[in-house]
């Protein structure tokens, strides 16, 4: 099963990176959304897969009595999902505001910090 997941993770990475390499911020943003899933699934698969049994201890027991899914990657991923969502939202709004101010969604034309026709630095002291 892990092999199948590896292929899926690879595909998620490939698609998100392909979108990242685009010049349009909206496609980059979609790449961000997919990248989160890719990383989460990567961590999840790293902790090995086990079907359907969540790591919840029965009421009258002190530890898990039967094999259950690995709880550690789940704990890592749970917070990661929420954080990657808030960053996705932040980037979305950032992109949106950039579009409003610069009136372009093409990253080649977003040259406020590194203008293309930057003057040569002064040669004095």
């Amino acid at each position: 099963m892990e092999a199948l997941f590896s292929v899926l993770v690879g595909a998620l990475f490939a698609v998100s990176i392909y979108l990242f390499l685009s010049k349009h911020i909206i496609r980059v943003l979609m790449g961000v959304a997919i990248l989160g899933n890719a990383v989460n699934l990567l961590i999840f698969t790293n902790g090995r897969l086990l079907r359907e049994v969540p790591p919840v201890i029965a009421a009258d027991e002190y530890t898990l009595q039967q094999a259950a899914a690995n709880p550690l990657p789940q704990a890592l991923i749970l917070t990661a999902i929420v954080i990657s969502f808030s960053f996705f939202a932040f980037l979305l709004v950032l992109g949106y505001r950039a579009f409003q101010e610069l009136e372009t969604d093409d990253t080649d034309e977003m040259r406020v910090a590194e203008p293309a026709d930057e003057e040569a630095p002064p040669l004095g002291y």
Binding site: P54, V56, A59, L78, T79, I81, V82
Partner: peptide, 12 residues
């Protein structure tokens, strides 16, 4: 704490 759930999910 004892069943699936928690602060993150509830908050969402």
């Amino acid at each position: 704490h004892n069943e699936p759930g928690g602060g993150f999910i509830g908050g969402l």
